[in-house]
Design a protein around this nucleic acid. Structure first.
Lengths: 192, 192, 192, 192
DNA sequence: CATGAATGAGAATTCATTCAT
DNA sequence: CATGAATGAATTCTCATTCAT
């Protein structure tokens, strides 16, 4: 009973995630979402009063999952380099293992359909990363570039890797790519 | 008259570029494009038989402009490092100076509305970049990572810089950011 | 329990009366009625198989209450004028004291949602009024206009008074208005 | 060309008038209006941006026609009684000859779908009637009841007559009914 | 009987596209 | 070629009604 409810809501969110990612917000009809989720058109609106509410709920949830995955195991690492490598690897692996969620977040993180409220609610994680980078610069391990520059290069580096690994035309060993990618970024951010 | 024709077509493309970038493909109506371009709704369809044709034409043209801008002055540079620095700077400056075109290409490069044909037609430029990187690796200046890895890190690096410079919340000196960004990537790609 | 049943049914009818009057038949959803009545959406359909049945039941009941109120005390009056004045006053006071029921009847007496059957069932009371007027004409007190004319002027007169007294922009003494209104109609129907 | 445009708009308004009157605002779908008007569903929205705008435009126009009809010939009458009789007759005849428009105004004059703006725009005519009644009271011809009482009795009297004449179950001579009706009201409003 | 999630037909509105002028 | 009214399929969302619990 309670299970069925969860199932329908989850089915709608799953279908929406896939379709929004593939075809965008306006390119996806609520009818198609309902159909793919195996529910009636009206059912979607029992759970999400509007299409916008649906995408916001989805964004909130997916970003939450991402947020939690990213942090895993970092505290257990001792050296700063290992912490950063773990973060690098966590982000990329999450993207590779949840490509739909990854692409969804990429596509809608700056979309007008995501409310400012949803976005702010979700920005909190950013602080964690910011602190890590600040710590690296303060300890002298990372070179003293503007933190924003360091951070954006690091993040776009992870994006580069996810895209490369997911590219169907390229089949290279993922673990090796991740390690080499990290070496490039690490050399870049610490090099003379 | 011939001028007017050019003007109308150009006006439509300009309006479309702006609207597609801001609101996406399905979020933009042909009526709105016509209105912003100052022409009648029917006129748009005299130049572009369908909305999809319009966005493909637009993509083709914008990508062409990008392609040409990127190459400027590279042949005049002598050292490999200067060639790469020039390429780095060309890409970023184009993005910063033509933010709408830049965002348009970013947004629609992997969109389903862009035909495979359009995309392939446009891929040719890639070869030029590929050759440059291959040359760098062959000459031993760049470290011997898989070329795809090197290339994607480089490109995502330029994206990182464009986004950073365009970010309205961040106001740092663009030239300095570009140079520092290049130093990071160069160190990364050449470092031990 | 039997009490509860009555309560739920009555609560539904109360809520329906108010909402139908305020927003019309199609402007009122059964969900809203249920909500205002404090019952589940399905409960409404345990008592009334359809929305149309609900409004018909409501109409039947309200019209019945009106019918009974109107007659009160008329038999105790002796003169014809007093009987008619009492009827006049009864109708108006019912309207003023039960404005929702009054407006409901006014609004739906000629509506397509009220079945012919319901309407006919309810017409019976009309006979009583008809007889009273016939009696007045026969006795020579009322002038010899077509009875239909006399009746409709009388009824529309009561409507005029109810609307006037209920008008929030007008604040005049109700008793005096009723008496003056009656004088006008009486003079009209008996005058030379 | 210009004719066709007028035709479509007029056809839509005609169909809407009929349907709104018969089935109410929410009971009438824009699809049905379009169908009855013989145009496509989208065409309706070329002329009226929303359903509410349609009913307001309609109300505005119909009320304007009523307003003009009512005044006809009153200035040519000399005595106050003849002026009032003419007004009486004008109103009733308009209602009898344009029953749909009459019922439409009756039904929607106090409806929430008619904007306050539309209503106020339309209230102006009321002043004219008010002045006439004030004049009658001031000159001592009408008895000195509150003007609101006099006016509402008069108006509801016209409604009574229109309903009576339009009633398919009643077939009496209209002219005679109108004259007798006026006599009743006149006697009422002037009687001792 | 009471409940409220589920249903899907139907409602208002939008929009790419056509075509007569 | 330019125009913009006309079209009708498609979209988001509502709601009377059902039915398993």
């Amino acid at each position: 009973m309670d299970q069925q409810v969860k199932d329908k809501k989850a089915a709608i969110m799953d279908a929406a995630l896939k379709l929004f990612t593939e075809r965008g917000f306006h390119g996806t009809s609520t009818a198609q979402i309902s159909k793919d989720a195996g529910v009636a058109t009206g059912t979607l609106f029992n759970y999400f009063p509007t299409k916008e509410n649906l995408i916001n709920s989805l964004y909130f949830e997916v970003k939450g999952r991402l947020s939690r995955s990213i942090r895993v195991g970092i505290d257990e690492e001792v050296s700063f380099q290992d912490k950063l490598r773990r973060l690098w690897s966590n982000i990329i692996k999450w993207g590779v293992n949840s490509p739909e969620e990854y692409l969804f977040v990429e596509q809608f993180c700056s979309s007008p359909y995501i409310t400012k409220i949803t976005r702010e609610e979700v920005m909190k994680e950013y602080i964690f990363l910011n602190e890590l980078v600040q710590e690296g610069i303060a300890s002298g391990v990372l070179k003293d570039y503007t933190p924003e520059l360091t951070m954006t290069i690091f993040f776009h580096g992870t994006k580069a890797l996810v895209n490369l690994i997911l590219d169907p035309n390229v089949s290279l060993d993922a673990e090796e790519l991740i390690e080499n990618g990290f070496r490039i970024i690490w050399n870049g951010l610490t090099g003379k």
